[in-house]
Design a protein around this nucleic acid. Structure first.
Lengths: 208, 208
DNA sequence: GGAGTTACGCTACGGCTCGTAGCGAAAGCA
DNA sequence: TGCTTTCGCTACGAGCCGTAGCGTAACTCC
């Protein structure tokens, strides 16, 4: 997570329990206080560790929250629901459920905002969260191609661009719906999103 | 903006020049310092006003930045480019150009993050930014229906839901592409986005 | 022109958080 | 038993917050 310890063999080892306690305390503080009122001193008290221990492991508030939020997204999975449409709806609903949790909402957007002025932080977010979940798009596409629902894309570059595009469209739409429009990404909405994604606007005029 | 002055007739009026100077100074501070290091005292010095004047007009940092960023999006327009696809690509490129500016990047995401725990702030964002730009989707849809590119939607509820969905998909995709994936929303990408939006995934296998 | 009202600039203040330094004790390895 | 690293604790200067108080400036109504 925050600092690899590959070489150090001697000396007192860092407490793994402290790591878990700190990250859990960070999420709890995000729920109760939000991003702006969250202080590292408060997190230290909640976790039962000294404030200096926090600063020894993380460079600051940004990096700590990235790690605390990243764990939330690891529970995403893509079970085979029989069709591409059903697969998409299933994983989008999972994603929406995570974004409905307050610790994900305030934490994720805040670190993304900070990352606009911090290249290292942006790379950390990309590695810890974004790229790790892009596997879902890849898996869904491969499965759909096996079913014959999607044509094969022999051009590797074009295929990669499509994967990136779909990821931005799906994740961006859910985030925007949940955080900016402040409306729930419920089954009906996800169904409409999937329809547009697969068939486009012109082909899907009817409701529901 | 921050406080309507409909009834007050007597007394010294608030300086409109100060308003403009403060909002411009806020954007400049966002560029140079980003959200977290931006302080109201610093903005006051840049704008050439007293710090107390800032607190008399805005409740805090959040509200100030919302107003400062909202002005950036008023330059969006939807010129008739002959087809729905061209209209979409044009306005999305405009939107992308705004999001490429650092004062929009860091400011917008930060206030959205804060809004997750502040209903009044979220409503302010919705009124000042989101709903104000939804006019673009409405205008584009009406124009496309006149051209016969999109079918009419007699059901008003379903039509409104579609407009909200498209807005979330387009704005969300551009924001995610620009801020999270940290890749440019250039012409090629916008072209791909438009293609998926209009025709869907299954119908558009080939490259750009 | 005077009275009343509101906005403004300036100074000062207590309170909070930050990030670091320094110390002694604890927990592992040779 | 030494050596090394982590940990908890305390203390500190620095910076920003948001407000109060005061005198002055600008504008309206009489």
């Amino acid at each position: 997570m925050q600092s690899r310890t590959p070489a150090s063999r001697t000396g007192r080892p860092r407490s793994a329990a402290a790591d878990a306690a700190i990250l859990a305390a960070t999420r709890q503080a995000l729920v109760e206080l939000g991003w702006s009122r969250l202080t590292l001193g408060d997190v230290a008290v909640r976790a039962g560790v000294a404030k200096t221990t926090l600063y020894r492991r993380w460079a600051g508030k940004n990096e700590l929250v990235v790690d605390a939020v990243a764990e939330l997204f690891d529970e995403l999975s893509l079970p085979d629901r029989g069709s591409l449409a059903a697969d998409i709806e299933g994983v989008v609903l999972q994603f929406a459920a995570i974004l409905a949790r307050p610790e994900a909402r305030s934490g994720l957007m805040a670190v993304v905002a900070e990352a606009t002025r911090d290249d290292a932080l942006r790379e950390r977010i990309r590695a810890s969260i974004v790229d790790r979940q892009k596997r879902l798009v890849l898996a869904g596409r491969a499965r759909a191609q096996e079913r014959g629902e999607l044509p094969a894309q022999p051009d590797a570059d074009a295929a990669a661009r499509t994967v990136d595009l779909i990821f931005d469209m799906v994740a961006g739409a859910v985030v925007h719906r949940t955080l900016v429009s402040a409306e729930p990404a419920d089954e009906e909405w996800v169904h409409g999103l999937t329809r547009v994604l697969l068939s486009g606007l012109a082909a899907a005029p009817g409701p529901g």
